[in-house]
């Protein structure tokens, strides 16, 4: 085992899949010589050359649309959208095309491809370098949506995403790139899509989270443990398909559930999780299904005081846990 940063794990996963399968290509803005603005693809252009590591023009719809065509043509494209905030011009290609291609052709065609994008706030990125965009895509059948929280999962899930026969959106919280380290084993391993993980066992309150919030949930669990509140943390890892069983098993055990997400609260991904729990675990609930999520403003403000106000943090989560535990 070696201790690696989150971004090192992403880069290793990409590189090893490119070595394993010559149909895997990488394309996006600045992914070539520069190695990406976050250096996720650093070194790949030198190793694999112009054909397999392609600097694209600033045209996100083209990045995704040509990836769809290249996938039909026998390649396995891994597209990088420089910031999740800039994925919106590709919304039509993702939602109307990639997601629907297999269904609309009755299995005649498919688009095996991955779209990676750094997301999330807390990095002084303001409105347009901080967004969480997962809810737009978890809503769409035909897309898989993955949000890893550890270097181990980032590498293992990225491998599974590249090998998957359908389009996968792979969101990486940019604040974790260099701040999160973890053990990554040598050699090949994968983490299956669609499987959540209980990262902290407990008995009184279930906290469901993903990405950076999965770390903050663990910190919050430690804080309230000193107050004798036992928290079970579920890291979803894949948002769609949702591992409903792991979620429901935990909630049926604890009877209380707090869902945490960084995105705006209203209509966010956690709303659907809350609805499923309400529909399928109602008899087990000892309190309302609650959420801690970003405020409903159009973006994360730049000023540090305002940004801190916006961001969900361990203390805000701990407060949510305390209220629910006391219910």
């Amino acid at each position: 085992m070696a201790l690696k940063t989150f971004i090192e794990a992403v880069r290793e996963g990409l590189r090893e899949e490119m070595v394993r399968d010559e149909s895997v290509i990488v394309l996006g803005e600045d992914v070539g010589k520069k190695g990406g603005v976050f250096l996720a693809t650093d070194g790949l252009w030198t190793e694999f050359g112009d054909d397999r590591v392609i600097d694209t023009p600033l045209s996100e719809s083209q990045i995704v649309g040509t990836s769809i065509g290249a996938a039909i043509g026998g390649l396995r494209p891994v597209a990088e959208i420089q910031f999740a905030d800039f994925i919106h011009p590709a919304f039509n290609q993702l939602v109307s095309e990639a997601a629907r291609l297999r269904y609309r052709s009755n299995n005649g065609y498919s688009a095996p491809m991955v779209v990676r994008a750094p997301y999330g706030g807390g990095v002084h990125g303001a409105l347009y370098h901080s967004q969480s965009v997962e809810a737009f895509y978890t809503h769409v059948p035909g897309l898989k949506v993955v949000v890893p929280s550890t270097p181990y999962d980032a590498k293992g899930l990225l491998r599974s995403s590249i090998r998957d026969d359908d389009p996968v959106l792979f969101f990486e919280h940019k604040k974790m790139y260099r701040s999160v380290r973890g053990d990554v084993p040598e050699g090949e391993y994968t983490v299956p899509l669609g499987k959540a993980q209980v990262t902290h066992p407990g008995t009184q309150v279930t906290v469901i989270a993903y990405g950076l919030m999965a770390h903050y949930a663990l910190e919050a669990a430690d804080r309230v443990a000193e107050e004798n509140i036992s928290v079970e943390v579920v890291d979803l890892r894949t948002l769609r398909p949702l591992d409903k069983e792991t979620v429901l098993d935990s909630v049926r055990k604890t009877g209380k559930c707090l869902i945490v997400y960084e995105d705006n609260r209203f209509g966010g991904y956690g709303a659907e999780v809350a609805a499923i729990i309400a529909e399928e675990a109602f008899d087990y609930l000892d309190g309302p299904v609650t959420r801690i999520a970003g405020p409903d403003v159009p973006g994360v403000p730049y000023n540090h005081v305002l940004e801190e106000w916006f961001m969900v943090n361990p203390e805000k989560i701990a407060d949510g846990i305390r209220k629910l535990a006391a219910y």
């Binding site: 719809s61 083209q62 995704v64 649309g65 040509t66 990836s67 769809i68 065509g69 290249a70 996938a71 039909i72 043509g73 026998g74 390649l75 494209p77 039509n92 290609q93 109307s96 095309e97 629907r100 291609l101 609309r104 052709s105 005649g108 065609y109």
Partner: peptide
């Protein structure tokens, strides 16, 4: 396979040409 939003298929053909 083609969808109803127009012109999206151009990028698919470009991707096929890239492949």
């Amino acid at each position: 396979s083609v969808s109803s939003p127009v012109a999206t298929q151009l990028l698919h053909a470009v991707g096929l040409a890239l492949a």
